[in-house]
């Protein structure tokens, strides 16, 4: 078997999710090549070459891939990937965008968002917002699979020495152009891979009050997330949403503040190791999954939490 892993990156650095996907590839077994498609992404290729268990790094460096447009990546990955038994990518917004195109161009099904590898053709994935867990078997010759990064412990990012090979395959479908992007700038860790996440919900009442959570998060080196209710209400931007349709997180510690715990939110965080809930409604469903529940007014509890943390951190 031979597995092609599509690297997730921002043209300058390799995202940790790639190391999680390589771990999923190792669970399948076989030679693992990594494709880095981007623009001026040499540093990413070097980083990918150091990842544990990688056989070869293929680099497609061209302006056509600079913004990860699904039309162009889809054609590239279908072309490069047709010689492999498996094509894997992280189930982030880039992978979710281009991978189904790859599958369609290769006339195979895609298995989305796998949490576990049972065998080379059988995978475990959540359905119904994680309310059911399905084991599915693919009968296709090439398995196109997106991987839930938090479900696999990452391979080591250092120590490997894979060969790096430049590809001169340029696929510009000419169907789409990048116009602009508004990316959140934050010094905090990436939400999807942070060890600690502090999230706020509708109970935060407005965006300004999220500053309280940011202060607590910064004491612990945590990322800040939000429930859909807080995003829909306009308190915070969409990239902070944790849940079925937002980001899936599984940190060591998840602190839910003023979040009632809708099933769609739980689908995004219930694999966290330790869950803390702070909510004034003791009937809130979040308490049913919380290891530690504090029934309290968050506007009193969060400043107290900040003070207590200052004593111990």
């Amino acid at each position: 078997m031979s597995i092609l892993v599509i690297a997730e990156h921002d043209n300058s650095s390799l995202k940790q999710a790639t190391l999680n996907v390589v771990a999923a590839a190792k669970a399948i077994g076989g030679d693992i090549d990594v494709l880095v498609a981007g623009e001026n992404c040499g540093a990413v290729a070097e980083a990918a070459a150091k990842a544990e268990g990688v056989n070869k790094v293929l680099v497609a460096d061209n302006a056509a891939y600079g913004h990860f447009l699904g039309e162009n990546l889809g054609e590239l990955v279908a072309e490069v990937g047709k010689g492999y038994s498996h094509i894997l990518a992280a189930a982030g917004t880039v992978g979710k965008d281009f991978m189904p195109r790859v599958a369609a161009l290769l006339d195979v099904a895609q298995v989305s968002d796998i949490m576990r590898v049972e065998s080379e053709d059988t995978f475990v994935r959540p359905i119904y917002a994680g309310n059911a867990i399905a084991t599915v078997k693919s009968s296709d010759s090439i398995k196109v699979v997106t991987v839930r990064p938090t479900a696999f412990d990452p391979v080591a990012g250092e120590g490997g020495s894979a060969a790096v090979e430049q590809l001169d395959v340029v696929k510009d479908a000419g169907l789409s152009q990048f116009v602009n992007e508004e990316l959140a700038k934050s010094d905090r860790p990436d939400l999807a891979s942070a060890g600690i996440v502090v999230s706020g919900g509708r109970g935060m009442q407005n965006g300004d009050n999220f500053k309280m959570l940011e202060q607590v998060a910064d004491l612990m080196g945590a990322a800040v997330g939000a429930s859909r209710a807080a995003v829909d209400a306009g308190f915070v931007p969409n990239d902070m949403q944790v849940g079925q349709t937002g980001k899936i997180v599984a940190p060591q510690l998840y602190i839910a503040v003023g979040i009632s715990g809708a099933i769609q939110h739980l689908a995004g965080m219930s694999d966290s190791k330790v869950i803390v809930a702070i909510n004034k409604d003791e009937e809130a469903p979040i308490f049913q999954v919380a290891d530690y529940g504090l029934v309290a007014d968050l506007f009193e509890a969060v400043p107290q939490l900040e003070e207590e943390l200052k004593k111990v951190m």
Partner: peptide, 22 residues
């Protein structure tokens, strides 16, 4: 192309303890 071999309920999390204060 895909066959579903089985569908299970997710592992349920146990509710933990309530703490008195911060």
């Amino acid at each position: 192309r895909l066959s579903t071999l089985k569908v299970e309920a997710p592992a349920s999390r146990q509710a933990g303890v309530k703490v008195a204060d911060v």
